[in-house]
Nucleic acid binder design. Structure first.
Lengths: 195, 195
DNA sequence: TCTATTATTGAATTATTATTCATTATTAGC
DNA sequence: GCTAATAATGAATAATAATTCAATAATAGA
């Protein structure tokens, strides 16, 4: 018998995140990923059926993880809807601050996948976003939020904004301070630009 | 002698926008583009040196055009900074409302290009964004806008939000009303979510 | 009508790379 | 130490698709 050495599946996923972030999914080759992961090219296929599923696994992991963590924030009933929204922003930022490459892959590659087929990760992603929607609905009911806001539109508004800022930061983590970005996002989300 | 029939360059560009929107840049083949444009595959190379330059030409056209049009809005001194910002939103929305496919291509493919090489369209794109920044700076000086806002962060914030909403709409123009989206964007940008 | 010139064609070429698979390496249990 | 099983390898295969180019078509001017 022979037992698997180390955790190659994890190595490959982490290598893929780096390579995808650097070159984009379609420009990345299996050879690059295997080199980055220090395994043979063929070995990747012992862990993943094909290149696309590597990408899907990345998002699977990400949203599964985020959804679960987010539950902690929303179930705390001492917090107001606005505070919970802030918590949601924090969660996203904290998740990506550990891994700028993951932020880049997320921003650049997820959309394609979202509209392609029925991807398994889509569920977790949608569940995550839906929790945010609930928060906003609740805030409107309590008259804490502007009543004319369309929930879906707000969802895409704030998520697009956050994504774009994460991307900016991830391309150049030393140039921008993620906490400054975070503070601005929270303020703009709640109060907008006009003084 | 023989003269070129019709405007094949334009036909190819328009075909490419459709094909890129449907399949994404990397999944699109020259054969698909040539079929959509009703020309032979080889003919594309009479007008564009390669596939990538087709994409670049699309953005070249877009931002050149938008920057020039935007000059009209900013040079009108009767308008306040907030009104000018609204005008900028209108301009973007109007440009894409004619061509949802172009919106999809913009959202999905521009980022890759932006960080790849020094693309010629980047200039026009940046010039466009910089005009927006000027507006905000001006609004802050007149104390009309929140003074703590970081100009770069706001730029990425609002642009990410708009992009994401354009994409949502472009994927399904019949389901979402772009004018509702537009109204929500303008409000959220200026006053945020909190009532 | 003929010819020179340029436009267009699409099959052939070429390059790239995802995926396969025959071979080799490793080790758990005996 | 031997063996049976599985892990890992990386060169060979196969498929895809960008790009080229020899052949053909069209037309302006003579």
């Amino acid at each position: 018998m022979r037992i698997k050495e180390g955790n190659k599946e994890k190595d490959i996923l982490e290598a893929a995140i780096k390579v995808f972030a650097q070159n984009g999914f379609h420009q990345s080759t299996m050879a690059q990923i295997s080199e980055q992961a220090s395994v043979a090219t063929g070995s990747i296929y012992l862990y993943f059926p094909n290149k696309k599923e590597i990408l899907q696994s990345i998002f699977d992991m990400l949203w599964n993880n985020l959804f679960e963590t987010f539950d902690t924030v929303t179930s705390n009933d001492k917090l107001s809807p606005a505070e919970k929204l802030d918590g949601m922003i924090d969660l996203l930022f904290d998740r990506f601050i550990e891994n700028p490459s993951l932020a880049i892959v997320f921003v650049n590659e997820q959309n394609h996948l979202l509209f392609d087929d029925k991807n398994p990760f889509t569920n977790n992603y949608q569940r995550f976003l839906d929790r945010g929607i609930e928060l906003v609905r609740n805030g409107i009911e309590r008259k804490e939020f502007w009543g004319e806001v369309d929930l879906t539109i707000f969802k895409y508004f704030i998520f697009g904004a956050v994504r774009n800022l994460l991307h900016l930061w991830a391309q150049n983590p030393d140039k921008y301070n993620l906490n400054t970005i975070r503070k601005n996002v929270k303020y703009l989300m709640k109060h907008g630009l006009v003084a």
